[in-house]
Design a protein around this nucleic acid. Structure first.
Lengths: 125, 125
DNA sequence: CGGTATCCGTAGAGATACTG
DNA sequence: CAGTATCTCTACGGATACCG
């Protein structure tokens, strides 16, 4: 019981923790899914349409990944037919806000990025 | 010469552009490498030591990727022995600033993330 | 409706050894 | 010093079909 966790008042996020989050939101469909859930809670087939052309499998994989990191919630309403609602957690909403700033950066630096890519391809392969 | 690019006053970064950047900085070694370059310009073997236990190949791959997106510069000094310096571009520095806010988020939400992961593993596999 | 199961191709990532 | 080359393994991502 003498857990070290007791002393974790300062979380001291490791480099690995940062990386795991960056990889998570860097997954192919994660930003779009979070974007839809930021707009409103959604159901599975709703997301399937909104995030087209995602496949059922990849939507499941993406949702499970985000859920396992506490970024989204999955609520099962025991109705007939079954109804499952997904939504962002508070933490997920905050994180998505940061993704918006990355999007702004991308917006501002898009010309630079594209010309850098062109230049790189010209110089190398 | 009637380029459509002329009308790109509003860059209108696509979802794919955002994703490409998120994936880039989500690459395994990218954040650490950018962190070292944010502190100071560095040389290849310097980075190799600082970002240990990265391998030469992965450092090259990471550097090339960041360079091709215009996030870092690669400067060759034609001395003997050869000397190559890497550094962040202005855009890269800004982006790394945003990564810091993600790190802050991670810091704040680390307990939530970890307990979510534990809960998820308990409920599922 | 809300998913799983199975199969498969590609790209990411590492170990090790070698070079201009 | 600053990388490449080669090989290997895995994990990501997608297509298709099926299930409670």
């Amino acid at each position: 019981m003498a857990e070290v966790a007791e002393f974790a008042a300062e979380p001291e996020a490791s480099c690995d923790d940062l990386r795991s989050i960056l990889s998570r939101v860097g997954e192919k469909w994660a930003p779009q899914v979070m974007g839809e859930l930021d707009a409103a809670p959604r159901r599975f087939n709703e997301l399937l349409r909104l995030v087209a052309p995602i496949t059922p499998r990849m939507l499941t994989v993406t949702l499970r990944g985000l859920e396992s990191d506490g970024l989204i919630t999955r609520t099962v309403h025991p109705t007939v037919p079954p109804q499952v609602e997904y939504g962002l957690t508070r933490a997920g909403r905050k994180l998505f806000g940061i993704l918006r700033t990355v999007a702004s950066w991308t917006d501002e630096n898009l010309p630079a990025v594209h010309s850098a890519r062109a230049a790189y391809r010209a110089a190398n392969g």
